[in-house]
Design a protein around this nucleic acid. Structure first.
Lengths: 236, 236
DNA sequence: CGGTACTTTGATATTCATCAACTCCCGTGG
DNA sequence: CCACGGGAGTTGATGAATATCAAAGTACCG
């Protein structure tokens, strides 16, 4: 595993670096190749859009993290998704946004106006197929969240969450065992249908069991991957 | 309210009945107007497809009910959706079904082959826009389920479920206050992330409070709509 | 009728939320 | 430079909600 990473590094270093800095992770970008996109930078905690707002843009996250959530009448919040680099937010055909989107940290976005989107769909079949695929991924992820929240215990949920974050890292950075949590405990709690106390307790329990290590609250290292998988699957 | 229902009945009785029997609810059908559809009838408990199966068809439910679910490694099941008359199942662009679809009662479906679907998308922009809208609705419904399961107490979940079922009835039959539950307590429990005992207890509690009436286990009448809404919103 | 699946009801156990106190970190301003 | 304050996170004690276990009741279908 480590040898493999070294190989990649070696190969890429023999090529112009600039070609791989941004492009490499941008190749898969949904909005790549579209000339009519703009850039938007939002500060930590700033809202990109709110539920009910007229839909103006579709966004692709370039750097940072965005918390997609819904808020009930009683004030309780459910986080639906953490949108990280490469993720697209604001899909869906409605006239208004049906969720909140809040940056959890300094975040850069690529934006495509909704008018452009509708036009492109009409013109470009390949793009609309891609849109269909994106919607499908979104739906699959949301369904998996339902399973996690509906059927699993607190430790199972946390373990599942950490493995998901690791999997995302793995697809993007290659450095998989260290997870940087770009969101607060409160965000995680609202995502998993738990309280911050339960999230905190469960994480420290994992730490005491040497399954993970936590430094500076936000940096998690997976020490025992197999155990974490067992936990996620409820084999314990 | 009751007078209004009588009015409707009166009006429709002065018109040829056949025109309103099946057509009326079929007008909005996603697959209407497509010549290449076939019909499929499945018995109660029969699976229409399983997770992992190669995707062959897209289905629209004509009569009956279909339980869409995912099953975890440990055997626990999460119901994602109850597909009733007018609902489309098997959306999504993947090569294989990612859920189970099981008829909870005798069910009739209209089927469109996946090959046809892909071809139609390429040809017909209107259709692919409609597909996008269907996916959006599906995503919205799933997100709402996450909120219900992640943030709400057992009574809130049951109340929300009953109101949703009523809302669906209202859109289709006009007879809104009586809900026929086409699924078992077990299906409801797996949908709401509860146990069958909790579902049963909560329903009988509502019955004792005169909020609903239950006859023959499957027929629920809403007696106090406002109270039920309050319960769903957690105002109690 | 008889058996099976479904449902209800009761007693108990467990998990997780709640309430409360405390620590840590960081930035601000005296 | 230090005191102050606030947000984030941790830890502990307690209680409530819901799962679990168990048993009886009911509807359904051959």
């Amino acid at each position: 595993m480590l040898a493999r990473q070294c190989n990649y590094e070696f190969e890429s270093s023999s090529l112009p670096l600039s070609k791989y800095k941004d492009d490499d992770r941008g190749v898969e970008g949904f909005l790549n190749g579209l000339p009519e996109t703009t850039e938007r930078v939002v500060a930590a905690r700033e809202y990109i859009f709110c539920e009910g707002d007229a839909k103006t843009h579709l966004y692709e996250v370039k750097t940072g993290a965005v918390c997609i959530s819904k808020i009930s009448i009683d004030g309780s919040r459910q986080v639906i998704k953490f949108a990280l680099s490469g993720d697209v937010i604001g899909l869906g055909s409605q006239e208004n946004y049906d969720t909140y989107a809040q940056a959890t940290t300094l975040t850069k976005l690529k934006a495509l106006s909704y008018a452009s989107l509708r036009r492109i769909i009409q013109e470009d079949t390949t793009f609309s197929m891609k849109l269909w695929e994106m919607m499908t991924e979104e739906l699959t992820a949301t369904r998996n969240l339902v399973v996690t929240v509906g059927q699993r215990s607190a430790p199972q949920r946390i373990a599942t969450f950490l493995l998901n974050m690791q999997e995302r890292n793995r697809r993007q950075n290659l450095d998989s065992n260290t997870i940087v949590l770009l969101m607060t405990r409160s965000d995680i709690a609202d995502y998993l249908g738990l309280t911050i106390e339960t999230v905190s307790r469960t994480l420290t329990k994992f730490k005491l069991q040497k399954i993970i290590d936590i430094v500076e609250n936000r940096h998690v290292t997976i020490l025992n991957f197999d155990k974490l998988e067992d936990l996620a699957e409820g084999d314990i």
